[in-house]
């Protein structure tokens, strides 16, 4: 596919161009991220959504260059402030870019933090890995940051397993804020939490983003979360970006059949009479041998003969709205 030039980007911070990350297996390649291009502007929020296994997490690990041992970048670039992160010397990248400029909020599962060190020690380690500050100074910043995410100071002296799920998630958010980065990538940061905590954490992240003005890439499998949080939305399916655009446009006028089905699958509480819960039939394809043509074609209700012949082009529809589908009448 040709390179897409996003004219809508006004103040680009992050730009992903035709990124390909494959996993090598005994029998070939698993194309986890295949030709994905997107961008994120300064102080904006980009939502990335898709089913599990669609390549969202691989995209994140590629950006942070922490891919599993068998993964390899086969092409494309990740430009941050105009610099290609993938071409950078790994040492400099780890020391100068990571956490100082781009930070990461993972899902705060039980084992997200080292179980044998206290919270404050792990935060301290993170600061000292990047900045040459005194311990006292660093500790003060840790306490301040923890406070700003609503975690009482004394929790810093605890071990990770002594915290509740919500607290752990807040600690992980505080961890991302320690060095005041200009971009934060959140990968399923609210997934394992109960609904109330989830709402609180989401609220917290939104308000932090607004007050601190960092850009955020919000990766989730739950499309409904993105409506209120993000400025733009990217939908991934089977390693491909299928739709990308302004949040309003994508939600009000989803063009790709997959996006349409995803939006339909969100249960709507405002509608009193119970709609039948919509599920997408079939399973995501085997990424080692993806189907010819459009990868969604086998599950697509609108599939045409051309869909299983030719790969649809990822192209602009109208304004900031891109889609890769044969069925869409392009302008």
């Amino acid at each position: 596919m040709s390179e897409v030039i996003f004219e809508e980007s006004t103040d680009t911070l992050l730009e992903v161009n035709s990124l390909k990350t494959y996993y090598t297996t005994k029998t070939g390649y698993v194309k986890a991220v295949d030709d994905v291009s997107l961008f994120l502007d300064r102080s904006k929020v980009l939502g990335v959504a898709g089913e599990s296994g669609c390549g969202k997490s691989t995209l994140v690990t590629t950006i942070f260059r922490v891919m599993p041992r068998n993964a390899r970048v086969m092409g494309g670039e990740v430009k941050f402030k105009g610099q290609d992160l993938l071409k950078m010397d790994l040492k400099t990248f780890r020391k100068e870019i990571v956490w100082k400029d781009i930070a990461y909020i993972p899902q705060a599962s039980m084992d997200v933090l080292d179980p044998v060190y206290k919270v404050k020690d792990q935060m301290l380690e993170t600061i000292l890995a990047h900045e040459d500050v005194s311990r006292a100074e660093a500790m003060e910043r840790i306490f301040r940051t923890l406070e700003s995410v609503g975690v009482p100071q004394e929790k810093a002296d605890m071990f990770p397993h002594e915290l509740s799920g919500g607290q752990r998630q807040r600690v992980v958010i505080a961890m991302a804020l320690l060095l005041n980065p200009s971009m934060i990538v959140s990968d399923e940061a609210t997934t394992a939490l109960d609904v109330i905590t989830q709402a609180k954490i989401l609220e917290l992240m939104k308000s932090l983003q607004e007050s601190r003005k960092f850009s955020m890439m919000f990766v989730t499998h739950d499309l409904s979360l993105l409506a209120n949080v993000s400025d733009s939305i990217a939908i991934m399916y089977a390693g491909k970006l299928v739709e990308f655009g302004d949040v309003e446009k994508v939600f009000s006028n989803p063009l790709h059949p997959y996006t349409q089905l995803l939006i339909k699958a969100i249960p709507d509480l405002r509608v009193r009479k119970q709609k039948k819960l919509v599920a997408i039939p079939g399973f995501p394809p085997d990424l080692e041998n993806p189907p010819k043509g459009c990868r969604f074609a086998p599950r697509c209700p609108l599939a045409m003969p051309v869909c299983s012949e030719k790969e649809p082009e990822f192209s602009k529809v109208e304004g900031f709205h891109y889609v890769a589908c044969h069925a869409v009448n392009k302008k």
Partner: peptide
């Protein structure tokens, strides 16, 4: 080496 916290440590730029 493949666990969550190690990935997170690597992502944080720890040596």
């Amino acid at each position: 080496m493949g666990s969550n916290f190690v990935n997170y440590l690597r992502a944080r730029g720890i040596d």
